[in-house]
Amino acid sequence: MTLTDVAKKQTCRILAIKGPDNLRQRLTALGVLRGQRVRLSANTLWGNPRTYAIGRQQICLRNEDAVMVEVELCND
């Protein structure tokens, strides 16, 4: 699954970040890395863009970019 599939109240772990180099570089700089836990923290009327929370950070992503982030559900 990818970030866009994450529902409210679910916590996920980042498996891989794909996509063009500048997207990966940008996300890396913001501290979005493999292994981190992510939640969906806000959505807009249109369902795009959405905000994801990683720890205390909140990052806005358009769905076009969010599909590049592969995640898995955390079971704990």
């Binding site: 997207l23 940008r26 996300l27 913001l30 863009p49 905000t51 205390r56 950070q57 909140q58 990052i59 806005c60 992503l61 358009r62 076009e64 970019d65």
Partner: peptide, 9 residues
Amino acid sequence: ESFIMELPP
């Protein structure tokens, strides 16, 4: 350009 932005606290 994609819209990647951090929300400040």
